[in-house]
């Protein structure tokens, strides 16, 4: 007999719902319901990816922090390219100039899903705050001093972040007064910062040569850590 409590039942239903979404999106992507153009195929693929990722997040929720993803080595540059690619439609529609420059193929080790969310938040923020026709540049490079580190920088030509607010914006819920009209909960940089800390890394904000913000995420090469948890085994909400 399989024992199921209310939470298990809810998670089961959520996974089934996600399974349906993923399955139908995959069928659309693969043209099972008729021809699709490249943009439609890319959107359907994105739904599949987000659905599968959401399933993995649910799995973590179900485990209440008792498990973390086994550390996996992965290429941060490849991850950055993949995430920027998710914004292709927006890039074209808004006339943005977007580049990704990757030096080397250094790997970092750890929770790929957590870092993927971090990078997606950094890139998503740059897109959100850059005006139409502006520039977003993503660069991944190795920095050897003071210790071997992989650095991902996201530069934009948006309004930037004033020096006095650059630490504040890394905290959950922090938003600049001028951003009131732009949708957001002030969580993106906090999520990125927490994920970076789980890799023994960091996120910092500076001025970009493009005139907007430069947000840098630094992760020690080849070293990682599971998601941070408090003493009760639950994910830390820092």
């Amino acid at each position: 007999m399989i024992r199921v409590d209310a939470t298990d039942a809810l998670l089961h239903d959520l996974r089934n719902a996600l399974g349906l979404v993923v399955g139908l999106a995959a069928n659309l992507r693969d043209g099972l319901d008729g021809p699709v153009n490249d943009a439609q195929r890319a959107h359907a693929q994105r739904i599949v990816e987000v659905g599968v990722d959401a399933g993995a997040m649910l799995e973590r929720l179900a485990s209440t922090g008792a498990h973390t993803d086994p550390a996996a080595a992965f290429d941060l540059g490849a991850l950055a390219r993949s995430i920027v690619g998710r914004f292709d439609a927006q890039t074209a529609a808004r006339g943005l100039r977007v580049t990704v420059a990757v030096e080397g193929d250094d790997v970092v080790t750890g929770d790929r899903l957590a870092l993927s969310r971090a990078v997606e938040n950094l890139v998503g923020n740059a897109f959100k705050y850059t005006p139409d026709g502006g520039v977003v540049e993503v660069a991944v490079r190795r920095v050897d001093a003071p210790s071997p580190t992989v650095e991902l920088c996201v530069d934009d030509s948006g309004p930037g972040i004033p020096p006095e607010s650059r630490e504040d914006v890394l905290r959950a819920g922090a938003r600049l007064p001028r951003d009131g009209a732009i949708r957001g909960e002030g969580l993106g940089l906090a999520i990125a910062s927490t994920a970076a800390a789980a890799f023994a890394g960091s996120v910092s904000v500076a001025a970009s040569p493009l005139g907007g913000a430069r947000v840098s995420l630094r992760i020690p090469c080849g070293v990682g850590a599971p998601y941070p948890h408090d003493s009760a085994g639950k994910r830390s909400a820092r």
Binding site: R15, L18, G19, V22, G23, A26, G51, A54, G55
Partner: peptide, 8 residues
């Protein structure tokens, strides 16, 4: 196989 999964 755990759901959700790409049916491929």
């Amino acid at each position: 196989i755990s759901k959700p999964v790409d049916p491929v």
